[in-house]
């Protein structure tokens, strides 16, 4: 009965075959991307230097560095995170800790999912219609950052919600049983044990916001500016848009320049992501219960 029959061997073969097939599919996805990253590194690497990062573009953006674009991206990301992170975490806390199971809550959940699915160019239209035109912020860092904030909000909500939910319910019940208010429970037990997870999600959002182009194109990012922004009401250059510009809009750009810009952009994103992953692994290794 336990002897391996011909049929068993056949099953084993089928299984091996499918395992190999699916493994191959993973490789098909991974290899081109790794190759592309390698090409970016090889072609863009030589362009990168301290001067590239810390000087202004010159000669109609065909020479020089990317400093104003880099600085502008930092402006945009910081201002947008200042809006979306507190709002998103508060919304997640509401959904995770306070929200009753009713139609308002379901509507909020549905809206969050839909907000995450709205195309980035529609967010750009919204930014133009709402922040640039209606609220009269003009094309400015403020308008662009707020557009980015609305765009990143749902993901901040979802990742923060997941982090909050990872705190066992028993801890909350123990606190409530002692007469702690919902807020006292959140403040003393839930947040201290989920804040690291929340921040991990936020770091990911920072990297996502840094790479966005469409939402900022018409709301505050400029193709080229001869000066640096001084307040949120100024326009700014941005790294992602700068890549688009040097790759498509400016004739006579030396080949390595856009590769260099792409490499810096992807470098920022990858560093942020790796940081977030490393942070998460560290957390997982340090269980408190």
């Amino acid at each position: 009965m336990f002897a391996a029959t011909e049929r068993d061997f056949q099953y084993k073969r089928t299984e091996k075959m499918f395992r190999a097939l699916f493994g191959f599919m993973v490789l098909i996805l991974a290899i081109p991307v790794l190759m592309i990253l390698a090409i970016l590194l090889i072609k863009g690497g030589p362009a990168i230097s301290m001067a590239f990062i810390f000087t202004d573009p010159t000669n109609g953006m065909t020479e020089g560095g990317i400093f104003p674009a880099l600085l502008g991206t930092i402006w945009l990301v910081v201002v947008s995170m200042m809006a979306s992170v507190p709002l998103g975490i508060a919304a997640a806390v509401y959904l995770s800790e306070y929200a009753p199971d009713n139609w308002v809550t379901r509507a909020i959940n549905l809206a969050t999912i839909n907000l995450a699915g709205v195309p980035s160019i529609v967010h750009a239209l919204f930014g133009v219609g709402a922040f640039v035109v209606f609220f009269r912020f003009g094309t400015s860092i403020l308008a662009a950052s707020l557009t980015l904030a609305v765009m990143t909000l749902p993901v901040v909500i979802v990742s923060s919600w997941e982090a909050l939910q990872s705190v066992p319910r028993a801890f909350r019940e123990a606190c409530w049983n002692m007469g702690a208010t919902r807020w006292q429970t959140i403040w003393n037990v839930v947040l201290p044990n989920s804040i690291a997870g929340i921040l991990t999600g936020v770091i990911l959002q920072v990297s996502r916001a840094a790479g966005e182009t469409a939402p900022i194109m018409f709301t505050g990012a400029a193709l080229f500016l001869p000066f640096l922004p001084e307040s949120v009401f100024d326009q700014t250059m941005a790294l992602a848009l700068h890549l688009f510009v040097v790759a498509t809009q400016v004739p006579g750009v030396p080949e390595q320049l856009p590769y260099g810009v792409a490499l810096v952009l992807i470098g920022i994103v990858m560093i942020m992501n790796t940081l977030s992953i490393w942070f998460r692994m560290k957390l997982r290794g340090k269980k408190k219960w």
């Binding site: 019940e173 123990a174 409530w176 007469g179 201290p192 408190k288």
Partner: peptide, 20 residues
């Protein structure tokens, strides 16, 4: 309700040491 609960101590069968 929190004032009510603070006057009532509860010990449940599954022990819960808070992570502090």
């Amino acid at each position: 309700v929190y004032a009510l609960r603070s006057r009532i101590g509860v010990v449940f069968p599954l022990p819960v040491g808070l992570p502090m």
